[in-house]
Amino acid sequence: MGEILVVDDSKVMREMIIACLRAQPGLSFTQAASGLEAIEKLSLKTFQLVVLDLNMPDIGGIEVLEFVRGQDKLRSLPIIVVTTRGDDASRATALAAGASRFMTKPFTPEKILSEVRELLEQPAGAPR
């Protein structure tokens, strides 16, 4: 049903996120270990959803968001920001930069699953 790009500089975190989402049938996963790798992969391939960490080397999640939302073809791509920084300022920054959803670590498998399901069920191009 969809290709998900999981972006986090921690391998364990990526694996955990994928393990959580495996409960949803029909998804396949691509991993990116940095914001740079994420942007590269997004520019060369089509994804249905992105799970994005904020704090990463070189360029963080916010910059990835800003770049992605500046691209016509990626403007309505659902992006879930997942971060350890749960403060209001971070949330506001991420949403302003174009995050579709904002989740803080730790999160439960159920929580991320339901977010992903909701976003994937929205018709393409619908307002986020």
Binding site: S10, K11, V12, E15, M16, A19, C20, R22, A23, P109, E110, L113
Partner: peptide
């Protein structure tokens, strides 16, 4: 839901990365 993972299973991997 029965197929939801238990994240505690990732403790060994956590140790390696930590």
């Amino acid at each position: 839901m029965s197929d939801v993972v238990d994240l505690a299973e990732f403790r060994t991997a956590f140790v390696v990365e930590a």
